[in-house]
Design a protein around this nucleic acid. Structure first.
Length: 204
DNA sequence: TGCCAGGCCCTCTTTAGGGCCTT
């Protein structure tokens, strides 16, 4: 059973957009939060078994030379599956990361018991004034601490975690007592126009 | 051969189309 007070925020860098078209993971980064505090991190490059495009090299800064000596996806994902055991999961545009997580774990016959929540879907509802809901844009808009690194797995996971905690904080300031992972999922599934109604009903 | 993601969400919608996000 997933723990109620802890969660893992994760981010993949990949060779492209779709595991169904043969794309693979090339880096996984994650932070484990317990009661809103970072207690552990995970970051690992992985060798997908073929060369990545020059687009991906320049988009992520991860080069073929860096991947040449990296351990295989199978090896890294086996270790990552231990990291996320029994944890609920968060990602920015979670449907993307879930597809890659599921595809990579299926290859090694591993699974996980947690559920996914999506920081992008929550942000679209709670941060409606943002010029866009790209992770980098939300980080700028909300003045979230960052080290200037974007499109690397651990850096993006850290920023996503900070964004998530900021949104939880904002809900607490609006009178929602200790917004849970499940409550955040409910927010993400509520029609935009009904979010204020949900919050009004949920106030302590 | 040539093409290829997929889920969410809005609207000039629901017998559909297109932008936003992720790499």
């Amino acid at each position: 059973m997933p723990q109620a007070n802890s969660v893992v925020v994760l981010d993949f860098e990949t060779t492209g957009l779709s595991p169904n078209l043969g794309d693979r993971a090339i880096e996984i980064g994650a932070v484990k939060l317990v009661n809103g505090e970072v207690v552990d991190t995970f970051q690992q490059l992985m060798n997908p078994g073929f060369r990545v495009s020059s687009f991906i090299e320049s988009y992520t800064g991860i080069t073929n030379n860096m991947l040449r000596t990296a351990p295989s996806c199978d090896e890294v994902m086996a270790s990552f599956s231990e990291f996320i055991l029994d944890e609920n999961l968060i990602a920015h545009n979670a449907s993307f990361d879930k597809r890659f997580l599921d595809a990579e774990l299926e290859r090694i016959n591993r699974g996980y018991s947690g559920e996914f929540a999506c920081s992008l879907l929550v942000a679209r509802r709670l941060i409606q004034g943002a010029p866009s809901h790209k992770l980098g844009e939300l980080v700028r808009y909300k003045n979230i601490d960052n080290d200037g690194v974007f499109h690397r797995a651990l850096a993006d996971a850290q920023m996503t975690a900070k964004l998530w905690l900021l949104m939880v904080d904002e809900l607490e300031q609006l009178g929602i007592a200790k917004p849970s992972f499940q409550f955040m999922k409910t927010v993400s599934k509520t029609a935009k126009g009904n979010v204020n109604l949900l919050l009004a009903k949920s106030r302590a």
